[in-house]
Nucleic acid binder design. Structure first.
Length: 325
DNA sequence: CATCGGTA
DNA sequence: TACCGATGG
């Protein structure tokens, strides 16, 4: 499950926002939202982002605080939602559930002994995107006129294929799967401060002397979301081995190793389920409607979102003027 | 997910 | 060079 190994292999460089102006980015919505649910909620009380009915609304705050970054830099976000969980990922999902349950137990224990800080920290690990969260996020995005895409399966894959097809300029995600799914470029760190990072597929392949299939094979040897890696093989060894033995099968033969479902996983990375879509990039947020939804309909404290809405409105004025000059 | 200290 | 467990974000 360690695909952080890919960071060592990928060609990544910082790019100033100025170089990205006008770009359309297919953002993995789950990934993006998750950052806000773990960071925004983390150090605050549960009640603050929960309605009287116990409905989680931190996502709404996250969206309002997170989107201005795109608008202010003249980037057009396309939010891509996950579809069905891939069968192959069943193991991984089960593993996550176990981790989550373990974290929930520890959190309960922390609460028991009155350790609020520890409990809050663990809370972050037990968060997940409920149906309500997905639904209210979509409703808000609709009011902000942000394009939304439903992926047939992995959101990451859909983002990557949209980038590969030229439907968007870049994929946007914090992790590395988009590289394996074939995104020519992926923007990372769109949520944090400072300039984003651009992960470049062609440059990566050039550096490693591999083709895309070779890169997928390397990743599979190191371990991906869908398979355990081969014991004793890390990024360096994997590149050397694939170069030497030609492909995944050659390496597995030589080492007398096996990867369950290797054929299917390899195919999944090379040609993942994704749908062709057209994106309307003429985005005109209806800020009053969005504010009404968040504040009046869901009861989020106005001061939590006011600044975000202001920033969105201001950036619209800006780009509106730009269009006439 | 990133980083780190420590081990094999 | 890889693996592991811990930890902060």
């Amino acid at each position: 499950m360690g695909n952080a190994d890919l960071r060592d292999l990928a060609s990544i460089r910082d790019v100033p926002f100025a170089e990205l102006e006008g770009s359309v980015v297919a953002v993995d919505a789950h990934n993006w939202l998750y950052r806000y649910l773990t960071t925004t909620v983390k150090w605050t009380s549960d009640e603050k982002y929960t309605t009287a009915d116990g409905v989680e609304v931190a996502n709404l705050v996250g969206v309002v605080q997170g989107l201005p970054k795109f608008f202010e830099h003249d980037l057009i976000p396309v939010m891509v939602f996950d579809g069905a969980v891939t069968d192959l990922k069943a193991d991984e999902v089960a593993e996550r559930r176990e981790k989550r349950e373990a974290a929930e137990e520890r959190k309960a224990a922390a609460e028991e002994r009155g350790d609020a800080v520890e409990a809050a920290r663990l809370e972050a690990r037990t968060q997940r995107l409920t149906d309500t969260i997905q639904e209210t996020t979509r409703e808000l995005l609709e009011r902000l006129d942000v394009p939304v895409v439903e992926a047939p399966a992995e959101g990451e894959a859909q983002c990557a294929r949209m980038a590969a097809a030229g439907t968007v300029d870049h994929a946007g995600s914090e992790d590395y799967d988009t590289l394996l799914f074939g995104a020519p470029t992926t923007l990372r760190q769109l949520t944090s401060k400072g300039d984003p990072e651009l992960m470049d597929l062609a440059a990566t392949l050039e550096d490693l002397g591999l083709d895309r299939q070779g890169l997928v094979d390397v990743a599979m040897l190191c371990g991906t979301d869908f398979n355990e890696g081969v014991r004793g093989i890390g990024p360096k060894t994997a590149v050397k081995a694939v170069t030497e033995h030609g492909d995944l099968w050659g390496v597995l033969d030589a080492r007398d190793a096996e990867i369950p479902n290797a054929e299917a996983i390899r195919e999944l990375f090379m040609d993942p389920p994704a749908t062709k879509v057209a994106i309307d990039t003429d985005v005109n947020p209806d800020v009053p409607a969005a504010r009404e939804y968040v504040v009046d309909e869901w009861g989020v404290a106005a001061d939590e979102v006011e600044r975000g809405f202001e920033r969105i409105a201001e950036s619209q004025v800006q780009t509106g003027l730009d269009r006439w000059t």
